[in-house]
Amino acid sequence: MNQEQRKAWNENHKRLTDMIAKPAEHQEAVELFLSQHAWLYAGGMDGDGHPTMEDELVQDIKEETLRRYPVEMPDTRNSIVWHLWHIARIEDMTMNVLIHGGDQLFHNWQAKMNVTAVHSGNEMREEEAAAFSATVDPDALFSYRLAVGRRTREIMRSLQPGQFKTKVDPARIRRLLEQGAVKDEARWLLDYWGGKTFAGLVLMPATRHPFVHLNRCLRIKEKYQK
């Protein structure tokens, strides 16, 4: 994803922000979301075939680069696998539980990924992040994230005009709390989500949030894998 493509992605995100809550533009908003979302996953997600941010990240990447912790960057100390975990967990929780009212896909993937943490990664202590980075199964992690992305696309296609204005149900927030989806120190995240509409969740956890973290991953790779 070159600079021109990044610029176009950001401009399209502004367009999506402007139209997503307008019932008359619902279908156009969904299609634009699907295009934006596809850039954040492995190529072929939408059948377009263009190289994506994830394609760029995984090309020739070494396992030691994926797992490296801590990293010395201005805006993060976390490993690439941590960032991938974090964005997958956030998207899984917000799309599958808060918007769809279903179950997290994580419960079917935890053992495969060889992880003990069930939370989002927010407020993770350094020793936790180091242990996670050393033991997580990267292949299973990529597969989990892909499953989350595919499910997000199904959910988006199922939403009806006007639903993007729906406020998050407090009962669904409580459900995440009961599942340990965030650490006690990160309950502020549930408060933040609780004040959002479906549109707000789509515009951040499902699109802007992974875009930001994937950019960090690419900078980590550039620095440590010459």
Rank of each mutant, 00 (worst) to 15 (best):
Q225T: 03
A140T: 05
E126T: 12
Q27G: 10
R6W: 14
D46I: 05
R6Y: 14
V71W: 01
D103Q: 09
N114C: 04
N2T: 04
W39V: 08
E63Q: 05
Q104M: 11
T152E: 14
K223P: 01
G195Q: 05
L190M: 06
N2H: 04
A29I: 02
L16Y: 13
G49K: 03
A29M: 08
M53I: 03
R151H: 15
F106S: 01
Y41I: 10
A199F: 04
H213S: 07
E178M: 10
R153N: 14
L189N: 02
Y224I: 07
G49M: 04
E126F: 07
R216F: 13
E126W: 09
W188F: 13
A42I: 06
A171C: 02
A129E: 11
N108E: 15
T135C: 09
V148I: 14
A24T: 07
D18Y: 09
L189F: 08
L201V: 07
M156Q: 05
M95S: 13
S133Y: 10
I173D: 09
F198K: 00
D46V: 01
G194Q: 03
A181Y: 03
G44T: 02
M156S: 07
E63P: 02
T52G: 09
E31T: 14
Y41E: 13
W82S: 09
M19T: 12
M19E: 11
M204C: 06
F164C: 05
M93Q: 15
A181F: 01
R77N: 06
P138E: 06
I99W: 00
D191W: 03
L218I: 09
F33S: 12
D92E: 10
L201P: 13
D139T: 10
R172N: 04
C217R: 00
V168H: 01
R125W: 11
Y224C: 09
F198P: 00
V136N: 11
G149F: 11
T52M: 08
A88D: 12
A206R: 06
G121E: 01
F106A: 06
F164E: 04
K112F: 15
V30G: 10
A42Q: 08
I80C: 03
A181E: 02
P170G: 10
N2Y: 04
L84N: 10
L203T: 03
L146E: 07
W193Y: 12
F198H: 03
N10H: 10
P51K: 14
R151T: 14
H100M: 12
Y41V: 07
G102H: 02
D169L: 08
M53V: 08
A206Q: 14
I20L: 07
S79G: 14
S120A: 12
H107I: 08
L201T: 03
E63I: 13
W193V: 02
G44A: 06
N78F: 13
R175T: 09
S133Q: 12
M1K: 04
L66C: 10
T76V: 08
I61V: 13
E54Y: 04
R208V: 15
E72T: 11
V136G: 07
Q5W: 05
I90R: 08
T166W: 04
K196I: 10
F211A: 10
W193E: 00
A29C: 03
S79D: 13
G101L: 06
M53C: 04
S133L: 07
N114L: 00
